[in-house]
Simulated assay, not measured.
Amino acid sequence: MPESQAFPIVHPLVVRVTHWINAFAMVCMLMSGWAIYNASPIFPFRFPVWATVGGWLGGSIAWHFAAMWLLCANGLLYLVYGVSSGHLRRKLLPVRPRDVARDAVLALRFRLPHETGRYNAVQRALYLLVLLLGVLLVASGLSIWKPVQFSWLTALFGGFDFARRVHFVAMAGVVGFVVVHLMLVLLVPRTLPPMVTGRARRSSHRIEPAHERTRA
């Protein structure tokens, strides 16, 4: 059997490239954002210096905006491709609460089947959620960046101070998504190589607990 049939393309090149650019830009935005937060914290804690980038407030702001433009351009490219090719519709829809609840229970029991290149209901819900959080981050970020020019947007968020809180909560949601995403990769490590090569053998399997894999 030809390799193209045994290992079909499950992640197109555009998806892979935008995925890794997005990962890099997101890390830069988070670390620079934490440094900016440390300069004027809104909660009674600060992020450790090793988790920040920029060195000082001006440097961190420069990193943040550079990563922001990269993230927005990359996100726009992914969105245009996703809509025009039908990728978003095929991969992320439909999302039904009943399906999400069912797959969440199966995942907690380590009995959720996984096929590389196809998202279960929980994954689809999480991806849609992080896309919405991204929109919220951009909107709240603009209201913080230019509170005079975007006074209507700042007012929509309840003022500058509340917009900062919204921005922080949306950021925390993105961090939570990243943590869950990495945990799923650790549970099913064979999902990582296809995001580099684009190819994978399609086969479903059950996510087994570590003690069961040890016995096998």
Score class of each variant (00 low, 15 high):
residue 1 M to P: 03
residue 1 M to L: 10
residue 2 P to D: 15
residue 2 P to V: 05
residue 4 S to V: 13
residue 4 S to H: 15
residue 7 F to W: 13
residue 7 F to A: 04
residue 9 I to F: 05
residue 10 V to K: 09
residue 10 V to N: 02
residue 12 P to Q: 07
residue 14 V to S: 09
residue 15 V to T: 06
residue 16 R to I: 00
residue 17 V to W: 12
residue 18 T to I: 01
residue 18 T to D: 04
residue 19 H to P: 05
residue 22 N to R: 04
residue 26 M to S: 12
residue 29 M to S: 03
residue 29 M to F: 09
residue 32 S to K: 01
residue 34 W to Y: 06
residue 34 W to M: 15
residue 35 A to Q: 02
residue 40 S to G: 05
residue 41 P to V: 11
residue 43 F to W: 13
residue 44 P to W: 00
residue 44 P to V: 03
residue 45 F to R: 10
residue 46 R to Q: 11
residue 49 V to M: 05
residue 50 W to F: 15
residue 50 W to P: 00
residue 51 A to V: 09
residue 52 T to E: 10
residue 56 W to K: 04
residue 63 W to N: 00
residue 64 H to W: 08
residue 66 A to G: 02
residue 67 A to C: 06
residue 68 M to R: 01
residue 68 M to P: 07
residue 70 L to T: 07
residue 71 L to F: 15
residue 71 L to I: 09
residue 74 N to M: 07
residue 74 N to S: 12
residue 74 N to P: 02
residue 76 L to I: 15
residue 76 L to H: 04
residue 77 L to G: 09
residue 77 L to D: 00
residue 79 L to I: 13
residue 80 V to Y: 09
residue 81 Y to T: 06
residue 81 Y to G: 02
residue 82 G to M: 08
residue 85 S to A: 07
residue 85 S to G: 08
residue 86 G to C: 01
residue 87 H to R: 08
residue 88 L to E: 03
residue 89 R to M: 12
residue 89 R to A: 04
residue 89 R to K: 07
residue 91 K to L: 14
residue 92 L to P: 00
residue 93 L to A: 14
residue 94 P to L: 11
residue 96 R to P: 07
residue 97 P to Q: 02
residue 98 R to G: 03
residue 99 D to N: 09
residue 102 R to H: 09
residue 103 D to V: 01
residue 104 A to Q: 08
residue 106 L to E: 11
residue 107 A to N: 11
residue 109 R to W: 13
residue 113 P to Y: 13
residue 113 P to K: 02
residue 118 R to G: 09
residue 119 Y to T: 11
residue 120 N to H: 10
residue 120 N to G: 11
residue 120 N to W: 14
residue 124 R to N: 05
residue 127 Y to E: 10
residue 127 Y to N: 12
residue 130 V to R: 03
residue 130 V to K: 06
residue 131 L to T: 06
residue 133 L to N: 01
residue 133 L to I: 13
residue 134 G to P: 01
residue 135 V to Y: 12
residue 136 L to M: 14
residue 136 L to S: 15
residue 139 A to P: 02
residue 140 S to H: 06
residue 147 P to S: 03
residue 149 Q to K: 02
residue 153 L to K: 10
residue 154 T to R: 13
residue 156 L to A: 09
residue 157 F to Q: 02
residue 161 D to Q: 08
residue 163 A to D: 05
residue 165 R to C: 00
residue 166 V to S: 00
residue 168 F to I: 00
residue 169 V to A: 09
residue 171 M to F: 11
residue 175 V to K: 03
residue 177 F to Y: 15
residue 177 F to L: 11
residue 178 V to T: 10
residue 178 V to N: 04
residue 180 V to R: 02
residue 181 H to C: 07
residue 182 L to T: 10
residue 183 M to E: 11
residue 184 L to N: 13
residue 184 L to M: 15
residue 185 V to Y: 11
residue 188 V to Y: 13
residue 188 V to Q: 14
residue 188 V to G: 03
residue 189 P to G: 04
residue 191 T to W: 00
residue 192 L to Q: 08
residue 192 L to A: 15
residue 193 P to S: 06
residue 193 P to M: 01
residue 194 P to S: 07
residue 196 V to P: 12
residue 198 G to E: 08
residue 198 G to A: 02
residue 199 R to I: 06
residue 200 A to T: 10
residue 200 A to F: 11
residue 200 A to H: 08
residue 201 R to I: 07
residue 202 R to T: 04
residue 209 P to K: 11
residue 209 P to T: 12
residue 211 H to I: 05
residue 211 H to L: 10
residue 211 H to N: 08
residue 212 E to K: 12
residue 212 E to R: 14
residue 213 R to Q: 12
residue 213 R to L: 11
residue 213 R to I: 06
residue 215 R to H: 08
residue 216 A to E: 12
